[in-house]
């Protein structure tokens, strides 16, 4: 143990490199990161991956089980549904719609929410107070109710369900961002930055943002998870995608009557949602840990 008697050749790492070197040690998180990447790639290139067009009906093969179950057909790996449509193709399309929707919502909500939240935190007085109370009111309306109202007013469609979910998640995100910025604003180094004459944008970019990474990651993860769950819930209740394009929740709802004759039609879409949430959660949890540990030293 002569740690002291050899010179440490490594350069001082930047915070980002340091966080990455902590993250790298967590093999589970790395696996989850690749998993998330693959899922995102599936979402982006779903149209090229699908083995069959999702809406094509193979009338000769109705209700095929997955190929490893007796009576299955290796042409349709996950079997077919009651109209003879390929389950795998529909599943991939479902993943594309659900995950893609959730990612779009997360991005939209985070951009819009950050702008509103930061403005609210940096302005004082009446405007902030009005926003505060409005947010409070929106926060206490259950998300499902918000979604129902919007869908009743504008009619059920995939786009409307996405808008409804974003609107119900937006207050949560604004609230989270607002609280973390507010906590940061009271700290001494922000005051000293202010005294240096930093503009609000500069204050946010260099003073606040690097210090609220951890709550932001937690918040994004939460918004993403809730978006997946809510999109599929709305789809399940029949307020999401209509007719041919079907996302995962609607996929489950459409096969629910067949639950005893071919349970895998219900099982696989649920499993897909499960895996999506699990993979992204492990990834962000690993990231959060790395950020916390990086901040500790």
């Amino acid at each position: 143990m002569l740690i002291n008697n050899e010179f440490n050749e490594e350069k001082i790492q930047s915070p980002l490199q340091y966080t990455w070197s902590i993250f790298k040690r967590n093999s589970l998180a790395i696996t989850a990161m690749w998993g998330s990447l693959i899922l995102i790639l599936i979402t982006l290139f779903a149209d090229y991956i699908v083995p069959y067009a999702p809406s094509t009906q193979y009338v000769k093969h109705l209700l095929l089980p997955p190929y490893w179950v007796e009576g299955g057909n290796s042409a349709h790996i996950l079997g077919t549904d009651d109209l003879g449509r390929d389950s795998l193709a529909r599943l991939i399309q479902g993943i594309q719609l659900t995950l893609g929707g959730a990612l779009a919502i997360t991005i939209a909500v985070s951009i819009l929410g950050s702008v509103i939240g930061a403005t609210a935190a940096l302005t004082k007085g009446l405007k902030a107070s009005i926003l505060h109370h409005l947010l409070d009111a929106l926060l206490i309306i259950p998300t499902l109710l918000t979604a129902l109202i919007l869908i009743v007013m504008f009619g059920p469609s995939y786009e409307n369900s996405l808008i409804a979910v974003s609107l119900s998640l937006l207050p949560q995100f604004i609230r989270g961002i607002y609280i973390s910025i507010e906590n940061e604003l009271n700290k001494q180094y922000i005051i000293s930055l202010r005294l240096d004459g930093a503009t609000n944008v500069r204050l946010l970019r260099f003073g606040i943002f690097p210090n609220i990474l951890e709550p932001i990651i937690t918040l994004l993860n939460r918004i993403f998870t809730m978006a997946i769950l809510e999109i599929s819930t709305l789809g399940f209740l029949g307020f999401g995608t209509q007719f041919l394009d079907v996302e995962l929740g609607a996929l489950i709802a459409s096969s629910i009557v067949l639950i005893y004759s071919s349970p895998w039609l219900v099982f696989f879409p649920g499993l897909a949602i499960f895996i999506i949430i699990l993979v992204f959660n492990i990834f962000t949890e690993g990231l959060r840990h790395a950020v916390i540990e990086g901040e500790d030293l």
Binding site: T225, I228, L229, S232, T233, F236, G249, I252, I256, I259, Y260, P263, V266, F267, P269, G270, I273, F274, I275, I277, L278, N281, I282
Partner: peptide, 21 residues
């Protein structure tokens, strides 16, 4: 706890309705 979070509630409910039978 993570598995519980990742299971969509409605799907779990549907699966649970199968359990008694």
């Amino acid at each position: 706890a993570l598995i519980g979070l990742a299971l969509p509630v409605f799907w779990l409910a549907v699966i649970t309705t199968m359990l008694p039978r």
